[in-house]
């Protein structure tokens, strides 16, 4: 038995195709991104080694820091909105008939492409014919906002479809975790006279702390690399008001053909995601991991 199941040739045959693809298309590229970041390169001509110049420029590039600030803002919004999703899941995990159906309906937007969602919300936000402004004018507001053209609100306008898109995803995760809380605990607390609020806050929440931690990482890292929806809706505009790290990187690389500088931005994004994942995990480390 052991001999058959430790046959090196078979193992290589089973693991190598996937492993080589992973190396070739994921790991080697992230190393190369760091390397290209040391080059002056337009993507077509030859590379010129310029050391850390791209990274030095990055540090003083105010347009880049503006995009980083927007990404961070999205991350903060996303983490705050987790509280709302948690609340909905707590309600759902109580004695709610049709809880299963509710969470499925909530999930629908998440399954659609960000491109389709962006296009749909561009119509919703359309200055004159969109649902939003027709509603506002019908209740007497004469100058409804230009949702995607006003530099002061565009980032918030973009965040609404993001909530709409991801709400069902987080509710689903929280709901699944809450369903795993042992029923006896909840019942005995109820018999002891605990209110539903106390049961939720004092018993259920601590028990799903591990899952909450994971969702915080998902929300922060997901926001830092957020791209599709913003790219389709505004391309980072107007005037950089909705620029985020990923859209800034994409523009540097594929609009202005600054491949070297774009690589530096991409490498920064990678390091940022890895560091933040690590920090959040350390900060929120619990003594006893609750595994589901």
């Amino acid at each position: 038995m052991n001999k058959v199941m430790s046959d090196k040739k078979v193992i290589a045959l089973y693991v190598l195709p996937a492993f080589l693809l992973l190396m070739l298309l994921v790991y080697i590229p992230i190393v190369l991104t760091g390397y290209y970041g040391l080059m002056k390169w337009d993507g077509i001509g030859s590379m010129e080694f310029i050391g850390l110049e791209n990274y030095r420029n990055l540090i003083v590039d105010s347009a880049f820091w503006r995009s980083a600030r927007h990404s961070l803002l999205l991350a903060i919004f996303s983490v705050i909105s987790l509280i709302g999703y948690l609340l909905v899941s707590l309600v759902l995990s109580g004695r709610i008939k049709g809880a299963d159906l509710f969470r499925k309906v909530y999930l629908i937007p998440m399954l659609l492409s960000s491109v389709a969602i962006a296009q749909l919300w561009m119509r919703i936000y359309h200055p004159t014919n969109g649902v939003m402004n027709r509603l506002l004018t019908s209740i007497g507001i004469e100058q409804p906002p230009l949702w995607l053209a006003d530099t002061n609100i565009v980032l918030y306008s973009i965040f609404i479809p993001i909530i709409w898109q991801y709400a069902g995803f987080y509710i689903l995760i929280y709901y699944a975790a809450l369903r795993n809380v042992p029923n006896e605990l909840v019942e005995s607390a109820r018999i002891d006279g605990a209110s539903p609020w106390q049961i939720g806050y004092k018993i259920k929440l601590p028990l799903i702390a591990g899952v909450i931690k994971v969702t915080i990482v998902l929300a922060v890292v997901g926001s830092l690399k957020y791209f599709d929806l913003i790219w389709v809706m505004t391309q980072g505009g107007p005037n950089g008001a909705s620029e985020v790290i990923a859209s800034y990187m994409y523009k540097q690389a594929f609009t202005t053909y600054n491949f070297g500088y774009g690589s530096a931005v991409g490498f920064f994004l990678l390091i940022l995601c890895l560091i933040i994942t690590y920090i959040i995990r350390k900060l929120t480390a619990t003594k006893e991991e609750v595994q589901y």
Partner: peptide
């Protein structure tokens, strides 16, 4: 955990 954008330029090349 790898962001797609950190691989785009090398993949393109």
């Amino acid at each position: 955990m790898i962001p797609v954008h950190s691989t785009l330029i090398p993949l393109f090349n």
